[in-house]
Design a binder for these strands. Structure first.
Lengths: 334, 334
DNA sequence: GTGAAAGCGCTAACAC
DNA sequence: GTGTTAGCGCTTTCAC
């Protein structure tokens, strides 16, 4: 395996020159650069990253910290897309991406400490679900930049984060209905234990109230994200005092049941009741009729989280920042 | 940040002694060890991994190579469990796990070359779906150990791999039915484009033939893994010439439809028709009645793949090896 | 515009 | 059982 000295010798220059060429230093003449690059090519030389890491005191590596025990949070396609987004940005920066599980222990110390103190990683991306005051304290103490995927909830410290703009998402969907003249707009959401669920609910309320409408309690329900729940609760709403002319559905699983309930009652979609759900396109197209959605770009979520992190790696005293990624309403048949 | 010299100075020994203590060399007296370890503790010293990597010419890192564009292969909980298994083993070895996407480019070269030639990684784990002759050639040329998750298919070269024992899985399930005296055993499988599908089919045939039974073509169907397909094809089988008294279902999605079709025909499960499906417990418990399954341990799959890899990192001229992980039949209500 | 030399933090051969 | 020293492959200051 050729090293920088071999290249230098072969090119008839010093190793510092080769180094400068590799790093495209402006102080090297174009002829020398061309020559050395040629030699590098023919010798098939690749710099040893460990040496580079040692010299520059940088690992050229960032870490995605996950909690494998939190099934809800990450055993879904969502996670994979986020990771893909992160991956893309990270490798563009010529860094590599480490994945580590929060609960893993290495020599009895937690992975994160091990990675950080051992200078194996320069930054950390972690889901808000595992962001608690203790971890923040830890990361701060080590002085390693980090960003949260998801708006932080359990943490009072100011941290950098990125999230889908859930509130605006449902708000816009609700506005759309209002502009269509619909006024009995139902909301079927997820339980409010998660911040994003509450945000989606808030968006609905916000839009209504700007039209001077108070949400009708009989049109609002929250439950776990199963198809069955969607069907059950939509049926109850349809049998209730107010028949809605539109439904905001905060989750795609729910929407499958919601659509079924409406069809079973013999109502027309979207003429009698229009429906907008939330989430990725993939599943939305499987429903019949295919459900309109507030689309979230999870790849972008990952990509931007990495960008946010690298900003802070490049400049340690950058202020903390929270970023919301806009959603887009995709109109389908409902 | 303290380094080894600082520790040495503070402990009143040389840095080689500290190094030996860190690596638990037998040539150091117990008193010295105890003393140095104490100093290390109080100084909160952690060895710089980049320096270690350079000195030992090891990156202490392995790579999980994925293909994010192959949605089928990895946008499922399966992937996550596998990764978890890998992660666990890797960190036990005090290595870290890099994740990289096959199609990512770094400085116009593919990630893998970049990782390998740059000495960023010592070994590679990759799904059989992306294992083709060119990649094998590439990895061999670089001399980097690798293992395939999944029995290789597109490759003639001998490689190390690990997989679920799909054949034995369906074979055992079929035997169970045969031992119960059932003889009209249907098989609803996945399309034979994937090796694991064919293996599951082969297991079914193998068990039958050892009982001297030739599979009844009207009882065998393969299709894509949707609930609807399961329902549709099961219905057709039930309306066909032979009424089965048992069904081997090679995929859990299918089984949901299969159960529905049987119930809709008014047949009793398991009295009239018994069903065994394939895959993880989680989804199986959601069906009604809860479906018995051939369980696969995907965590183990990941864990053992990492083990297989580290065997080869430790000893480069170990022979290639293929490992099949046994399945277990979990009896539920069907 | 390029080279010589020191140094990043660790390990290992050799000395005692 | 422990210390001295050279060296891993790169970058960077200082010279010229």
């Amino acid at each position: 395996m050729a090293n920088i000295k071999d290249v230098a010798r072969a090119a008839g220059v010093s190793s510092s020159t080769v180094s400068r060429v590799i790093n495209d230093s402006p102080s090297i003449s174009n002829e020398t650069k061309a020559h050395v690059r040629h030699v590098i090519k023919t010798m098939n030389y690749t710099p040893n990253q460990n040496a580079k890491a040692l010299t520059n005191n940088k690992s050229y590596t960032v870490t995605l910290l996950v909690d494998v025990d939190d099934e809800k949070a990450f055993q879904n396609p969502f996670f994979y897309e986020v990771m893909h987004g992160i991956e893309k940005y990270v490798y563009q920066k010529e860094y590599s991406l480490i994945v580590a599980n929060l609960n893993t222990k290495v020599k009895k110390t937690n992975v994160l400490d091990w990675l950080v103190k051992g200078k194996r990683t320069e930054g950390v991306i972690l889901p808000s679900a595992i962001l608690d005051p203790a971890i923040v304290e830890d990361l701060r103490k080590e002085g390693v930049p980090f960003v949260s995927i998801g708006e932080p909830e359990k943490v009072r410290q100011s941290v950098s984060w990125i999230d889908i703009d859930n509130l605006k998402g449902t708000e816009r969907a609700t506005y759309r209905f209002l502009e269509q003249g619909r006024r009995q707009i139902a909301f079927i959401g997820l339980e409010s234990s998660e911040l994003f669920s509450r945000r989606r609910h808030q968006g609905y309320i916000s839009a209504l109230s700007s039209y001077g409408i108070t949400p009708d309690p009989s049109l609002v329900i929250t439950c776990a994200n199963t198809k069955e729940n969607g069907e059950h609760h939509m049926t109850r709403i349809l049998e209730g005092p107010t028949t809605p002319d539109a439904v905001i559905c905060a989750d795609n699983m729910l929407s499958f049941g919601v659509l079924k309930a409406i069809k079973d009652k013999g109502l027309r979609i979207p003429e009698d009741i229009s429906v907008i759900s939330f989430d990725n396109a993939q599943t939305a197209e499987l429903s019949y009729p295919s459900v309109s959605t507030v689309d979230v770009d999870v790849f972008e979520l990952g990509y931007r989280s990495a960008k946010l992190l690298f900003d802070r790696i490049g400049n340690t005293d950058l202020a903390e920042e929270g970023i919301l990624i806009s959603t887009v309403i995709t109109t389908r048949e409902t």
